[in-house]
């Protein structure tokens, strides 16, 4: 039954989630912006360009993949919103990160319910890579 309590709980969850994502997105966005204007981002982009080219993504998008997998989706969003990408590139990144993100924490969780670390990492990273390659070709 929907009562006042439903809305209070929902609002609490909402505020909690927004604060959590702000804590991550704000510093990530800030750092990426500084990297952009100091020329360091360009340097990172050049290093990762050959790999990211397989997915049709610019080199600096590697930051979104790395942060999304090591930290969480919020960190990846901070990167995605601070660099310039086309709609196609954002969708490719979104699919890749959806399959494979927050790997340290989530792998620990799936291990608890009985799947080995290696099979699950291989599956998730494999799906991310395969989807990125395929979407770049078909989109």
């Amino acid at each position: 039954m929907v009562t006042k309590d439903t809305f209070i709980r929902g609002s609490k969850n909402g505020i909690h989630t927004v604060l959590m994502l702000a804590k991550i997105i704000l510093p990530v966005y800030f750092i990426v912006t500084v990297l952009k204007y100091t020329g360091i981002l360009e340097y990172i982009a050049i290093i990762f360009e050959p790999v990211m080219d397989i997915f049709g993504l610019p080199g600096e998008a590697a930051l979104a993949l790395v942060l999304g997998n090591a930290l969480n989706i919020y960190a990846a969003l901070g990167v995605i919103s601070s660099i310039s990408l086309t709609a196609k590139q954002i969708t490719i990144l979104a699919v890749m990160i959806s399959f494979s993100h927050t790997l340290f924490v989530e792998t620990a969780v799936t291990k608890k319910i009985g799947i080995g670390v290696l099979p699950i990492l291989a599956t998730r990273i494999g799906l991310a890579i395969a989807s990125g390659v395929i979407l770049n070709l078909v989109l």
């Binding site: 439903t6 929902g10 909402g14 927004v18 994502l21 997105i25 510093p27 800030f30 601070s82």
Partner: peptide, 22 residues
């Protein structure tokens, strides 16, 4: 820029959390 992105994401996430409780 960071605040703007947090705001645009909050506009979606907050209602979603309330909706999920409902």
């Amino acid at each position: 820029g960071g605040l703007t992105s947090v705001y645009s994401i909050a506009l979606i996430v907050f209602p979603l959390m309330v909706f999920m409780e409902i």
